[in-house]
Amino acid sequence: MAYSFDFGLVVSGEYGEWLRQGLLTTLHISAISIVGSLLLGTLVAVLRLSRITPLVWGSAAFTEFFRNTPLLVQIFFWYFGSYSVLPDFVNQWLYQRDFEFAAGVIALTVYTAAFIAEDIRSGVFAIPKTQLEASRATGLSFLQAMRYVILPQAFRIIIPPLISQFLNLVKNSSLVMAVGVMELTYMARQIEAYTFHGLEAFTVSTLMYLSISLVISFAVNMYNKRVLKIAPR
């Protein structure tokens, strides 16, 4: 099969603009979901460590369920399933807005939060128990001890795994194209359908993903080297 490559087609003009828009949407949805998943993940981890049985069980169920089901299924669930779970006026309000995007953000946030919660939990476990006991002994409440003593230390250890979760999130954001969010993969696919020059579109978008990944993993390596004094292996 003869295939003639035409990169000019996908880096300039209308289709170039599509890819650029797609990249911006990918960065946009990733940025919002990263902030969201960090907040939700921390909350879930704190609940899991709280020693209040219903909270521990609830947060454990949350992490286990969302870690052990495919993201794609979760995206479909939030997009098509929220209809019968949320009250009607909330749905109508949401639908007036960019609901595809919102469902994508919710799915990515919840999925990643489940992983982040586990990373934070193991980071906290890495801090000796005596730290918590000692800070409780100085009169701090559980939450104060978490906020001022344990979490700041734990975060230092969990920053590398956290960043690789963010990296996964950027890559996972490609799945939201299944519900019509016009991000990078969606646009590449669209160009394939319009021009039959999919390989060029896939090459350019793969390179875009790769550059994002390389920048992030470079940052992790630097952090490991400078702050944690671990040589990259």
Partner: peptide
């Protein structure tokens, strides 16, 4: 169509 049904 499902999206139409649900008002999306």
């Amino acid at each position: 169509f499902l999206a139409l049904k649900q008002g999306k």
